[in-house]
């Protein structure tokens, strides 16, 4: 299946070809990805939609260098990531990728500011931790520990932490999955702002079809492969989304 080339003006970020991932779960082989081929462009906002187990998270993990593919190739800005070893993947993550997870995964023993600063200390050209928190409108919560913040606030800290290094790609796995609609929208607004102001390629995994409306492109997953890809002519603002 070939992807429609909607963003003819933007340059190619990821070129993914025939990507396959097979897990061994005890005696059972699980085919998480079955030969996915896809191009992702700089600066676009992509939503991955699909049921549980359709392969979205596996793809994002491989894109982010958290996991290796069983077969196929991933190419980032002309560099082949497929057979890179752990240290090269670590370097890739460190310099290019920001992650946002469903359960925030903040370090509970560090404050909001410190969680962000954790990354700014190891990044090459980071913004300050304060700037990153400002992007997600959380400057006033910078001294709070995760346990003292709501889920939405924690997720915004996680976004700040992810973008503080000025990543080239922001990968978000169910960023609103654990949130109610109101806080979910605040988080999505933060993502949108990052995408627009920093021009970061943003990939968002979600179960929630309503979120698809804010994307440039929506990639539908089913059973380990891309079912179809839709481009939005008009991106809806998060505040207009409801679910």
């Amino acid at each position: 299946m070939s992807a429609p080339q909607e963003h003819s003006g933007a340059s190619l970020a990821f070129h993914i070809e025939g990507l396959t991932k097979v897990y061994e779960m005890g005696d059972v082989l699980v085919h998480a990805l079955r030969g996915v081929t896809l191009d992702l462009y700089e600066g676009e906002f992509v939503v991955l939609l699909g049921p549980s187990g359709s392969g979205k998270s596996t793809l994002v993990n491989i894109l982010g260098g958290l996991d290796n593919a069983t077969a196929g190739s991933v190419n980032f800005r002309g560099e082949d990531l497929t057979d890179e070893d752990e240290s090269a993947l670590t370097k890739f993550r460190r310099n290019h990728v920001g992650f946002v997870f469903q359960f925030y995964n903040l370090i509970p023993s560090l404050t909001a500011l410190e969680n962000v600063a954790l990354v700014t200390e190891i990044a090459i050209d980071p913004m300050t931790a304060e700037e990153a928190l400002d992007i997600v409108n959380l400057t006033d919560r910078s001294g709070h520990f995760p346990a003292q913040m709501s889920g939405g606030e924690q997720q915004r800290v996680a976004i700040a932490r992810a973008v503080a290094k000025r990543p080239d790609v922001l990968l978000c796995d169910e960023p609103t999955g654990a949130l109610d609609i109101k806080t979910g929208i605040v988080v999505l607004e933060a993502l949108k702002r990052v995408n627009e102001t920093l021009g970061t390629l943003t990939v968002v995994i979600t179960h929630n079809a309503a979120i698809a409306a804010m994307a440039d492109r929506v990639i539908y997953f089913a059973d380990g492969n891309i079912d179809r890809i839709e481009a939005n002519d008009h991106r809806v603002d998060p505040s207009e989304i409801s679910w």
């Binding site: 982010g64 958290l66 752990e86 240290s87 670590t90 370097k91 993550r93 460190r94 310099n95 990728v97 992650f99 997870f101 359960f103 995964n105 370090i107 954790l118 990354v119 190891i122 990044a123 932490r161 290094k165």
Partner: peptide, 14 residues
């Protein structure tokens, strides 16, 4: 485990 994963995802080396 989760925190270790996050740290690795954030780019900390093993």
């Amino acid at each position: 485990r989760g925190q270790i994963g996050v740290l690795k995802a954030l780019g900390f080396t093993g």
